[in-house]
Simulated scan of single mutants.
Amino acid sequence: MAYRVLVVDDSTFFRRRVKEILDQDPNLTVVGEARNGEQAITQVAELKPDVVTMDVEMPVMDGITAVRQIMAKTPVPILMFSSLTHDGAEATLDALDAGALDFLPKKFEDIAGNRKEAIDLLQSRVKALGRRKGAMLSPRPTIARTSPGTTAQTKQFLRPSRSLNEATGASSAPERTFSRPGTSSGKQYKVLAIGTSTGGPVALQTILTAFPANFPYPILLVQHMPGTFTHAFAERLNRGCQIDVKEAQHGDILRPGHAYLAPGGKQMVVDGSAQMPRLSIVDGDNLPNVTYKPSVDLTFTSIARVFGGDVLGVILTGMGADGREGCRALHSKGAKIWAQDEKTCVVYGMPQAVTSARLAEKNLPLSEIASHICSEMRAS
């Protein structure tokens, strides 16, 4: 069955371009087009699409307002198109807060290195969101200190997606679930590392805003995101969190209660020693077998070299398998690895890759991850 898509943009040329790309995939069908947010609201109600692609800046009604109203009235997975500017980053983050689940740069040459790669990426993102449409989950418990912009309707889309075993080459493994946190295991820690991609901005916001100001360890964050977005995202997280959050810079010395977000388009590597760890920010253009910038695998592997097993690694929602090999390196040193569960992932790719490789000790719903981390790492 093909996923039905509504394309929303004030540019006739861009709507035609997106339609041509999506219609090339037999599993995607564009069922309607809208020139502004007001038309989008009407057509979502009438056409009941599986996915909406949405521009940010439009006449009559902008995309952010439209997302907010759609999610309040007729929730549907929404993919935003945005410009790679600071203002574009802020607007996209506002759209994610309003309920959109994912975003891509509006200039296709910014999406990927060539046309075929860009086409494949757009098609795969839309299909991934299409799998969010269907049976709705019952409302989840309220998450402490959740951003006021994160809607209950957004959380309704956090439910199972199709298996990625074929894509990752991993064997199927039963997902383990655990009760609410209790006492710490008593393990020694020196750092918390979190990797994520699609759906990550909301997931990271949910977790980090629940941490106390005196969180006892440094936190390293790797989120697949364009370079112009990570600074704005770090600033937004810092405004909403009790801990300090910043975009990582070359030479940063890791400090407890501080979170360091890998800059987009670069690689974040931990150097030095466990007693004096510092960050190196490099281009990493010539690194073999590294697809993403930033790469969870690369950062996590460097963490394993410096901190050994004194690490709690967490893999959150995201497409693909980035993080699996980094978690393998950590796991081999004795680190603990946790993964977000399938039901609360926007895309169950990265967590499934880690779980199927039998590296994850726990599979946790998003609403419980922060409390489990705080209990395990004795943060209060």
Rank of each mutant, 00 (worst) to 15 (best):
V5I: 14
V7S: 07
F14A: 10
R15T: 03
L22M: 06
L22H: 03
Q24W: 12
D25E: 10
N27F: 12
T29N: 09
G32F: 09
G37I: 06
I41D: 10
K48C: 11
T53G: 11
T65N: 12
V67N: 04
R68V: 05
R68S: 14
K73A: 15
M80W: 04
S82Q: 05
L84P: 01
H86W: 08
G88C: 13
A89L: 09
E90A: 15
T92K: 05
D102H: 09
F103K: 01
P105L: 10
P105E: 06
K106N: 05
K107P: 06
E109D: 12
D110P: 02
K116I: 09
E117G: 13
L122M: 14
Q123A: 09
K127N: 13
A128Q: 04
R131L: 09
G134P: 12
M136R: 15
P139F: 02
I143L: 11
T146L: 15
P148V: 08
T150F: 10
T168L: 08
T168Y: 06
S171W: 02
S172P: 01
F178H: 15
T183H: 09
V191L: 01
A193G: 02
I194G: 05
G200T: 05
A203S: 15
Q205H: 15
I207G: 07
A210R: 08
Y217V: 11
P218A: 02
L220I: 12
L220C: 03
P226N: 11
G227K: 07
T228A: 14
T228H: 12
R236V: 06
L237V: 11
G240E: 12
G240T: 09
I243W: 10
D244E: 14
H250I: 00
D252E: 06
D252Y: 08
I253C: 06
P256I: 08
P256F: 04
A262Y: 01
G265L: 04
G265H: 05
M268R: 02
V270F: 07
M276P: 01
V282L: 08
G284P: 04
V290C: 13
V296C: 04
D322W: 13
D322V: 10
R324N: 03
E325P: 02
C327R: 10
K333D: 05
I337R: 10
K343F: 12
K343W: 08
C345W: 09
V354I: 13
L359S: 04
L359T: 07
K362S: 00
L366A: 03
E368I: 01
I373N: 01
S375H: 11
M377F: 09
